[in-house]
C-alpha cells in the first residue's frame, strides 16, 4: 500500500492526526520531565493507566473517562509523596506504579480474567482510534499545549533553578502540580498511540534526541516536537507498508532518530577536537 493511497482511508487519516497531536504534547512535556530527572513518571503513570483501564472495563465505562481522573489523582499522589513525605521521586513513582498494576490485575481477575480490550490498551492500536477518541485526543492535546505555551517561562525558570524561580515570585508548587497533571492527561492519551507498555518512549526519546543537538531551550522544544511528529507519521506509514505493529514501529522510529542524533553529536564533537 503506498502512503498517498493509504491517506484515502479515514482510519489512517484519523491515526495520523490524533497521533501527531499526542506526540507533539508528549515531546514538549518530555523535555521538561527529562531535564527535571522525572523521565520515569510516564512509565509509572502508564502502569496506573493499566489499573484504571481495567477499572473502566469492569465498570463498563469508556476507559478514557475512568483513566483520566484516576491517573491525574495518581500524578498528584507522586508529587505529594515526593514533596511532603520526603520520598525520593523515583521511589514515589515506583510506589504508585506498582499499586496501579496490582489493582489492575486484581480488577481484571475479578472481572473474569484479561480480555482482548485490555491487551489492546497494553500495546496500543492507533489505527483503531474512534472519532470520539480523536476529538478527545485533539481537544485535550490542544488544552495541554496551551498550558505549556502560556506557562512556558515559568516552566523554564522552575526547571532550570527552582529556588531562584521561587524568589522570582513564581509559584513553583503550582507549576509542579500543573506539570504532573498535564503529564497524567498526556500519558492516558498516549496509551492509544503506542500502548501502556511503551508510553514513556514518546515522552523520553524525542526529548533526549533534541538534547543531542545542544540548542537553547526553545530550540530543544522545537526539535523535540519535530522528531516526535515525524516519528509518528513515519511509524504509521512503515507499519502499513511492512504490515507490522504500529505502536512498536513508532517507538523504533523514535529510537532511530535518537541513535542518529547521538552519532551526529559524537562525530561532530570528535571533529571539533
Amino acid at each position: 500500500m503506498d502512503m498517498l493511497g493509504a491517506l484515502q482511508y479515514e482510519f489512517i487519516r484519523r491515526a495520523i492526526i490524533a497521533g501527531s497531536f499526542i506526540a507533539l504534547v508528549c515531546s514538549l512535556l518530555g523535555v521538561l520531565l527529562v531535564l527535571r530527572r522525572y523521565s520515569l513518571i510516564g512509565d509509572g503513570l502508564a502502569h496506573v493507566t493499566f489499573g484504571s483501564v481495567a477499572l473502566g472495563l469492569f465498570l463498563k465505562q469508556h476507559p478514557l473517562s475512568v483513566a483520566i481522573p484516576v491517573v491525574m489523582v495518581s500524578s498528584l499522589g507522586i508529587l505529594k509523596l515526593t514533596q511532603k513525605a520526603k520520598i525520593y521521586g523515583d521511589a514515589a513513582i515506583g510506589i504508585v506504579s506498582s499499586l496501579g498494576i496490582a489493582l489492575g490485575v486484581l480488577i481484571a481477575s475479578l472481572s473474569g480474567g484479561f480480555n482482548i480490550d485490555l491487551f489492546s490498551f497494553l500495546f496500543g492500536n492507533i489505527l483503531s482510534i474512534t472519532d470520539i477518541e480523536v476529538y478527545t485526543s485533539i481537544g485535550l492535546s490542544v488544552a495541554v499545549l496551551f498550558m505549556i505555551i502560556f506557562f512556558y517561562n515559568e516552566h523554564l525558570s522552575a526547571t532550570f533553578d527552582e529556588e531562584f524561580a521561587r524568589v522570582s515570585g513564581i509559584d513553583t508548587e503550582r507549576i509542579n502540580t500543573l506539570l504532573v497533571l498535564l503529564t497524567g492527561i498526556t500519558v492516558v492519551l498516549t496509551m492509544k498511540v503506542v500502548g501502556i507498555m511503551l508510553t514513556s518512549s514518546l515522552l523520553i526519546l524525542p526529548a533526549v534526541t533534541a538534547l543531542q543537538f545542544a540548542q537553547g531551550f526553545k530550540g530543544t522544544m522545537v526539535i523535540s516536537s519535530c522528531v516526535a511528529v515525524v516519528s509518528v507519521i513515519t511509524g504509521i506509514s512503515l507499519s502499513l507498508l511492512l504490515n507490522i505493529p504500529t505502536g512498536a514501529t513508532i517507538v523504533l522510529m523514535n529510537f532511530i532518530f535518537f541513535a542518529c542524533a547521538f552519532l551526529y553529536r559524537h562525530i561532530s564533537q570528535k571533529g571539533l577536537h
Binding site: L156, S157, S168, G216, F217, G219
Partner: peptide
Amino acid sequence: NPNFPATVKEVISLGLFA
C-alpha cells in the same frame, strides 16, 4: 545540570519574570 539546554541569554532573561 551541565546538559541543560539554555543559552546565556535565556538564563539571564529568567531574572526579568518576577
